[in-house]
Design a protein around this nucleic acid. Structure first.
Length: 515
RNA sequence: GGCGGCAUAGCCAAGUGGCCAAGGCAGCGGUCUGCAAAACCGUUAUUCCCCGGUUCGAAUCCGGGUGCCGCCUCCA
């Protein structure tokens, strides 16, 4: 190998080592289209804003993906020691909400309240950490009017018959997030021409109210805010004019986030969000999930069928930016993975519950084979951080957890393994590591025994199986086994198998799951 | 029409210049078990959509092609 080549690869290695030593979090930024080191504005603090829902309908799994992705980002940033202020808004005034209110003969607040409540129930069921602040648009009208006023003053907006529009031509950076120029967009634009607008891409900041619509007083007459202005105002109110992270689904990049930038930067003259993070879509049978196609699943529907962590595992096993294909087969696969995790956790719990001797010893008492296993297992947190620091690579992180689970199972399956103080200490430590990383991903938070019990309930419910009948058949089989009547026992097991019941015999008795 | 993404085993999926291409699900062989299940051990891609190029070296970079998908309109 020539010396120059050696030197070149050597230099790369040095750079690599430096990076590893610094241990910086790297994040893909939609604004720069690059993976960059994440350095918050203020050391130790992170301000993060995510666009929440428009409260006019129940949430579907697309909302679940976005919510789970940013929940994990929120948790991970806190795990890395940042003090995070996480703001997620509610849009509670909008054409669709007005439409629904009129159809039901009620007001928009009633509709918004209902769907915000539904949303919160769903998010709780998914095990999401509540954001720090959850502002509602209607609570921030004054701030919106102030920002619109300022945009008019600065020449970024104009008034036409009680409506206020943003003039995209006035903002030189328009299109920087979406990565296209106005000219590009014009080329194939199928945009509705509005005679009031100077440029078809101009968007409404303030909409004059029509008969029967909710309104607020403003310098331009009675009306209501446009959608985009809400997020610019609510994010800056809680996070300042410039803040760290702005997130949302990739479909929001244009026009919503582009417009947020135009408004906020037009008004403040300062950079708005520093890092833009966007999650990928959920498809169903390789088609985009959408209401018009009728191929969407609500969060409630999915959670009636699967444990929330099964959905979480399915989502986190792919990178947040990639497109994922939702299907029952995919969820069943995730369920098998969850069974592996909880199976190991259950074995650990049972082994620990039988003996508490590990409490009397410490790490320095661990030698030999136990020390070797402890070392391997204790690598998990640093490997986890390595993966997560690389643009929140949850898929790789989960791979490391599976590795650890295999090591643990192999340790426990080892013939030399006895539930004595040393191995129990190791198991307890392992449990701690799994819980530590699990807490960040929102996984393994259930009690293992409870997990399997809930799973049996759900699965028997799905197949309309009679639990009592199953338990009776199992009891009869156990009786036959005690009598060593293997033929009868196996016949009963086959009978259960036909119903989809899989048995597992252990010295403590027989447990079962639905396949 | 403009802009962008993706293509890695039977399926899902990580990997963006160099140790035998993570991990999961499914399969197969073995250990354990009365037999199973679970678990463990072994095994399953000489190769990363195709063609060409750069390089000592490419799944990874460049050019061309094919296929799938998304955005440009409310949308997580």
């Amino acid at each position: 190998m020539p010396v120059s080549v050696l030197f070149r690869s050597f230099r790369k290695k040095i750079i690599l080592i430096c990076l590893v030593n610094v241990m910086t979090l790297r994040v893909y930024n939609t604004l720069t289209k690059k993976k960059e080191a994440f350095i918050p504005l203020e050391e130790g603090k992170v301000g993060m804003y995510c666009c929440g829902i428009t409260a006019y309908d129940v949430c579907h799994i697309g909302h679940a993906r976005s919510a789970i992705v940013f929940d994990v980002i929120f948790r991970y940033l806190r795990y890395r020691g940042y003090n995070v202020v996480y703001v997620k808004n509610f849009t509670d005034v909008d054409d669709k909400i007005i439409g629904k209110a009129n159809a039901e003969g009620t007001n928009i607040a009633a509709i918004a309240d209902r769907y915000i409540r539904e949303h919160n129930d769903d998010m709780d069921a998914l095990g999401l950490a509540r954001p720090t602040v959850t502002p509602r648009a209607t609570e921030n009208i004054k701030g919106m009017i102030r920002m619109i006023d300022r945009l008019i003053e600065e020449g970024f907006a104009y008034v036409v018959d009680g409506d206020v529009f943003y003039s995209v031509d006035a903002f030189r950076g328009y299109g920087k997030l979406a990565g296209r120029s106005l000219d590009d967009m014009m080329a194939g634009a199928r945009i509705e021409v509005d005679v009031k607008k100077k440029n078809p891409f101009d968007f409404v900041l303030w909409k004059g109210s029509k008969e029967g619509e909710p309104w607020w007083d403003s310098p331009w007459g009675r009306g209501r805010p446009g959608w985009h202005i809400e997020c610019s105002v609510m994010s800056q109110r809680y996070l300042g004019e410039t803040f760290d992270i702005h997130g949302g689904g990739e479909d929001l990049i244009f026009p919503h986030h582009e417009n947020e930038i135009a408004q906020a930067e037009g008004a403040s003259g300062k950079l708005f969000a520093r890092y833009w993070i966007h999650n990928g879509f959920v498809k169903v049978n390789s088609e985009k999930m959408s209401k018009s196609l009728g191929n969407f699943f609500t969060i409630k529907e999915v959670l009636a069928q699967y444990h929330p962590e099964v959905l979480r595992l399915f989502i986190l096993q792919s990178h947040y930016k990639s497109v994922i294909d939702f299907s029952d087969a995919a969820l069943r696969e995730a369920r098998s993975g969850m069974e592996r995790f909880y199976g190991t956790l259950a074995t650990i719990e049972e082994t620990l519950a039988r003996n508490t001797a590990y409490k009397d010893i410490s790490e320095k008492d661990i030698f030999g084979i136990h020390e070797e296993y402890l070392k391997k297992i204790s690598l998990l947190p640093e490997r986890f951080v390595e993966a997560m620091d690389d643009d929140f690579n949850t898929a790789r992180a989960i791979g490391y957890i599976f590795d650890t689970v295999r090591i643990l199972n192999s340790y426990m399956a080892d013939k030399t393994f006895l539930p004595e103080a040393e191995p129990l200490f190791v198991l307890n430590a392992a449990k701690g590591y799994l819980r530590e990383v699990g807490k960040v991903l929102g996984l393994f938070l259930d009690d293992p025994a409870a997990y399997f019990e809930r799973d049996r309930d759900r699965e028997t419910g799905k197949r309309a199986l009679d639990r009592e009948e199953i338990e009776q058949l199992i009891e009869r089989r156990s009786e036959a086994r005690r009598m060593k009547d293997w033929k009868k026992a196996d016949r009963l097991r086959d009978e259960l198998k036909e119903k989809g019941i899989v048995l597992k015999d252990s010295p403590d008795g027989t447990t079962w799951t639905v396949e």
